Amino acid sequence: TTVKLGDIKVTFDNPEKAKKYAQKLAKIYQLTVHVHGDTIHVK
Rank of each mutant, 00 (worst) to 15 (best):
I28K: 14
N14K: 05
L5N: 03
A22V: 06
T2G: 04
K17T: 12
I40A: 01
D13T: 12
K9T: 13
I8Y: 15
V3N: 02
I8N: 05
P15Y: 14
T11I: 13
K20P: 00
G37I: 04
T2V: 12
T11H: 13
T11Q: 09
K20F: 09
G6L: 08
K9L: 13
L31P: 00
V3A: 03
K24S: 07
L25R: 01
L31S: 04
D13P: 07
V10M: 10
A22R: 02
L25Y: 03
F12D: 00
V42Q: 01
D13I: 10
D38C: 12
H34Y: 13
D7Q: 14
Y21H: 02
Y21D: 00
H41K: 05
K9P: 02
A26Q: 04
A22M: 04
I8H: 14
I28D: 04
A18P: 00
P15S: 07
G6N: 06
I40N: 01
Y21T: 01
D7R: 15
K4Y: 14
G37F: 06
A26V: 03
T39P: 02
H36M: 14
H34F: 13
A22T: 01
K20V: 09
H34P: 00
I8L: 12
K4P: 03
L31R: 02
T2A: 05
V3T: 03
T1D: 03
K43Q: 12
G37M: 05
T39C: 13
K19C: 15
L31H: 03
I8E: 03
L5P: 02
A26E: 03
H41P: 01
V10E: 01
L5G: 02
K24A: 10
V42R: 01
P15W: 14
L25F: 03
V35A: 06
I40V: 06
N14R: 05
V42K: 01
V3Q: 02
K4R: 12
A18S: 01
I40K: 02
T2M: 08
K27L: 11
T11D: 04
D13F: 10
F12I: 03
A18K: 00
L25S: 00
L5M: 13
D7C: 15
L31K: 02
Q30D: 11
H41M: 09
Q23T: 08
I8V: 09
D38M: 10
K43D: 08
T32H: 07
I8A: 05
G6V: 05
I40W: 06
D7K: 15
K9Q: 11
A18C: 11
A26G: 04
G6F: 11
I28P: 00
K24T: 09
G37P: 03
V33F: 07
T1H: 07
A26N: 02
K20I: 10
A18M: 03
F12P: 00
K9F: 13
Q30A: 09
L5E: 01
H36Q: 13
A26H: 02
A22E: 00
D13H: 09
K20E: 11
L31T: 04
E16Y: 10
L25Q: 01
T39L: 09
V3C: 13
V3E: 02
T32M: 08
K43C: 15
V35H: 07
H41C: 13
P15I: 11
K43A: 11
L31I: 04
A22Y: 04
A18E: 00
K4D: 05
A26L: 05
Y21R: 01
H36T: 11
K19P: 00
G37N: 06
P15V: 10
V10S: 03
E16R: 09
V33D: 00
V35K: 05
K43L: 14
A22I: 07
T11E: 07
L25E: 00
L31N: 01
Y21I: 03
D38K: 09
T11S: 09
G37W: 06
A22N: 00
H34G: 03
N14T: 10
K4N: 06
H36D: 14
K4E: 07
P15T: 06
K43M: 14
L5W: 15
V3K: 03
I40Y: 08
T2P: 03
K43V: 14
V33W: 09
V10T: 05
T2R: 04
A26T: 03
K19Q: 09
V10I: 14
K19T: 07
K9W: 14
T32A: 09
I8M: 11
F12A: 01
K24Q: 09
K24Y: 15
Q30F: 09
K24R: 12
H41E: 14
V33K: 00
V35G: 02
N14E: 06
D38F: 08
F12W: 03
A26C: 15
K4F: 13
K19D: 04
H36P: 00
F12G: 00
Q30M: 10
E16H: 09
E16D: 10
K43Y: 14
T32G: 06
A22Q: 01
Q23V: 08
A18I: 03
Y21W: 12
K24H: 13
T32L: 07
Y29N: 02
Q23R: 10
V35M: 09
F12M: 03
K43S: 12
I8G: 02
V35Y: 12
Q23E: 12
P15H: 11
Y29D: 00
I40L: 08
K20N: 08
V10A: 04
V42G: 01
G37D: 05
D7V: 14
F12T: 00
V42N: 02
E16V: 09
D7A: 14
L5K: 03
A18H: 01
L5S: 03
K20Y: 10
H41A: 06
K24I: 13
T11A: 07
K9Y: 13
A18W: 06
D38S: 12
F12S: 00
T2D: 04
T2L: 07
Y29M: 06
N14V: 05
T32K: 08
V10N: 02
V3S: 03
V42D: 01
L25C: 12
T39S: 05
K27I: 09
I28Y: 12
Q23M: 13
K19V: 10
T1M: 12
K43I: 14
V10F: 13
V33I: 13
Y21V: 04
I40Q: 02
K27C: 15
K19S: 07
K20D: 07
